[in-house]
Simulated scan of single mutants.
Amino acid sequence: MRTISLMNTISDKGTAVFDETYTYAQNAENPDAIMVRSADLHNLDYTDNLKAIARAGAGVNNIDLDECTKRGIAVFNTPGANANAVKELVIAGLLLASRDLYHGMEWVNTQAGSETLAKDVEKQKKKYAGNEIAGKSLGVIGLGAIGSKLANTALHLDMNVLGYDPYLSVDSALKLSRWINHKKDLKSLLEEADFVSLHLPLLDSTRGMINKETIAQMKDGVKILNFARGGLVNDDDILEALDSGKVALYVTDFPDGKLAGHPHVIGLPHLGASSAESEENCAVQAAKELRSYLEEGSIINSVNLPNVSLELKTPYRLGVIHENKPKVLSRSSDIISANGANIENLLNKSRGDISYSIFDLEERPSDEAIAAIEAIPEVIRVNLFEKEA
């Protein structure tokens, strides 16, 4: 029986993916795997039994990836599962930034009980008229699952779409309309965009990327939308730009004390992926990733280990997580062979300094053989998988 610890409330559709060979509960003790949404796991008390963590969402800033990698714990996310929900909210953000709907609604709410509201509306509405988004230029920084959906949708709203992503994947590129104007450098996008929308992960290289220098490259009166991660924008620099009028409006799904209440900031309470459909999609995808790994050692959508997918056709499989160094594969093979087991299939993939090797076997390797592989200095973890009858 495998145990899954739920660190947040997880959609029933997600937990329904697990069959009778699994148990799951909130904060279960000594779990084989963890499912999490937003709970902070940086101070997690790791157990030797913990093999995997699945984040029901895209960002993994709440997980200590370095520590998990050192312990051979596979960390998964669910790219694309919440993409439509975030895309729709960004479209709403574009409309909020263009037409002053927010302040218009605020004014209407102050008129409760007014007998002259219909007449007063005609006088007041000019204050909130705003502009249309058709014909304006939208700069999308990051063309992954969400950014590509936004870019394509904005074209159908008659916007001129500029895209920038130096790490654009083949899959994402194939999904993009040919009418999107791909920029080779960020500066040229910033110089042309009326709206700038951020859709990239928070890394050391992207933290605070919207700052004095990059804001200075933008049009006067630009409007910035951040539905990716709060740390991408330097709060002090964006506030200075808002006060000067260089940036007309900042729409963010990650408000904080410095930004809340500013007249030119529209802050939303991190609603990007908070649709019922998105939560279900993320939970189902995360549960499937865990089952695939725990049952057959296939790694799909890992953020810290190589992605390896191979159907388990033999009775047994060894999954060896190890440093990407010479002779680990041959030494492991020698130990298995010396144990009298024949290797039917072998697959090895690397991701930076980490490698993952799969050995498919007809005979069960002895405990002594597994211990001998674990004793190889470069080996981090060995998992044994058995094909279910």
Rank of each mutant, 00 (worst) to 15 (best):
L6K: 13
M7A: 01
S11T: 02
K13Y: 10
V17L: 03
V17K: 13
F18H: 00
Y24L: 07
A25S: 15
E29H: 01
D32Q: 12
A33N: 13
T47G: 05
N49A: 11
L50E: 00
R55T: 10
A56H: 04
G72K: 09
G72W: 06
I73Q: 10
V75K: 00
P79M: 06
A81V: 08
V86W: 05
E88H: 03
G93V: 00
A97Q: 10
L101E: 06
L101S: 02
G104I: 11
T110I: 03
S114K: 12
E115Q: 10
E115P: 04
V121Y: 07
G135W: 06
L138T: 14
I141Q: 06
G142T: 15
L157T: 10
V170E: 09
V170L: 05
L174Q: 14
L176C: 03
S177T: 02
K187G: 14
E191H: 14
E192K: 15
P201E: 04
P201H: 08
P201L: 08
G208I: 01
K212Q: 08
G221R: 13
L225G: 05
G230Y: 07
G230P: 12
G230Q: 03
L232Q: 00
N234M: 12
D235Y: 02
K246V: 09
V247K: 13
T252L: 02
P255E: 10
H262P: 04
L268A: 08
P269M: 03
A287T: 06
K288Y: 00
Y293W: 06
I300M: 01
S302F: 06
N304H: 11
S309N: 12
R317A: 01
G319Y: 09
G319N: 14
H322L: 04
H322A: 12
D334I: 11
I335A: 03
S337M: 07
I343K: 09
K349C: 04
Y356Q: 00
S357T: 15
S357P: 04
I358D: 00
E362K: 04
R364W: 14
R364H: 14
S366G: 14
A371H: 13
I373M: 10
E374Y: 02
E374L: 13
I376A: 06
I376V: 12
V382R: 05
V382W: 07
E386Q: 15
E388L: 08
A389K: 09
